[in-house]
Design a binder for these strands. Sequence first.
RNA 1: CGGGGCGUAGCGCAGUCUGGUAGCGCACCGGUUUUGGGAACCGGUGGUCGUUGGUUCGAAUCCAAUCGCCCCGACCA
Length: 448
Amino acid sequence: MRLSEFFLPVLRETPNEAQIASHRYMLRAGMIRQSSAGIYSWLPLGFRVLKKIEAIVRDEQNRAGAHEVLMPTIQPAELWRESGRYDDYGKEMLRITDRHGRDMLYGPTNEEQITEIFRSAAKSYRDVPRMLYHIQWKFRDEVRPRFGIMRGREFLMKDCYSFDLDFESSRLAYNKMFVAYLKTFERMGLKAIPMAADTGPIGGDLSHEFIILADTGESEVFCHQDLMNMAVPQDVDYRANLQPIVDTWTSVYAAADEMHDPANCPVPESELVSQRGIEVGHIFHFGNKYSKPMGLSVTGPDGTEQDVIMGSYGVGVSRLVGGIIEASHDDNGIIWPDSVAPFHVGIVNLKAGDDACDAMCADLEQKLQAAGLDVLVDDTGERAGAKFATMDLIGLPWQVVVGPRGLKDGQVEVKRRAEGDRDSMAPDAALQRVIAGTAVDAATQGMF
RNA sequence: CGGGGCGUAGCGCAGUCUGGUAGCGCACCGGUUUUGGGAACCGGUGGUCGUUGGUUCGAAUCCAAUCGCCCCGACCA
């Protein structure tokens, strides 16, 4: 991609409404634009990150055995009257009346909708277990949207729903999602802590929040230090028994500040870690909370009708964009993990229009693309300092600097955004270092 | 929903107290000299001062209403 042809409206100064790092940088790096309170447009750079995160979430859901569907954003009120939540949900639900006077709503979540879909199709115990998910925009009319994309009113969420015959089977689904979440967040370069959570308005008796660690996070998390270094399982067989993995992760102390009681904490202070964090995922087992009132049942092996046992599993996809920035930035801008970077490498042409520089940049771009990397070439007429500042701001993992001075000696410079140091080397060596040093996520390969 | 703050050019701000017809920096356009960490100089473009009503000879400025946005708290993917 040539920057001279791209749409990247960077801001040199921070808009005064943006207080936290992710909001400031998303606005400055031209990733998003605010439409109204808590509602944003995604510009090309932000859109690429959002889509890459979505692709990774999708890939892990598929691996766990869930099937993707797509439900509408607008739902009929009748469904919510069936579950009883139409009256319970309150002002957070955006209610709409269509031209015929029918009560509709913009979905804040999809338990009712998925229950309706499943009940119309599932009749026998042979139709379960199943897991269905979708990645769709939600709307919750928050009283106070804030922190940019992190607590918007409109947000992109992956929500998965499990359908099982009994509790024990449902627990297997819960465990699959638990493990899938560990892997999903790790794949985005995040350290996620699963924490036992209140089941809240959705109800039920088994629930975990997944909190990613970031110094600027909203809530404080207390946990045993062992959790910090716990290895996320690789190459998981989702048909195998996952209970040992879940047990390993849930046996270690972890609590949000409202649940944490320093006086009665089982972990000695020397082993206790206190960190700030952001909730990016939440999984619930909620039994027959929806299946019972909405009449979702199947005929069991013994010929009796049984309520289907359900769970729901959410990931805040758009929130993750902000969450990753909160977890990974410095004073100069964003530092993207390879897997979700909008481009893996930025080539800085210090003298656009110079034949040698132009040719070198084009050659590097072509070879990096051939190796499967997403490449942004700054071929604008900006001065060097401005180009460097923009590159640091948008946070691409690698920068390759091509200028007449270095090129005279057959050298280009390679800079790793995270560490900041620059090395001069021959172009071939630069290619090799960047290609070898980039972990392109398979789910994002060739997306753009 | 309680408390606080702010709406003046794309962004950051001054001007409001004390009314006299809008300004600064950056950005943008043209030119010259420059060119390896946000260049300098010259010349330009761009604003119904959030909106509506009122007071006044005259309102960004005073009064009233209204809309929007942000921050703190309670609540949430």
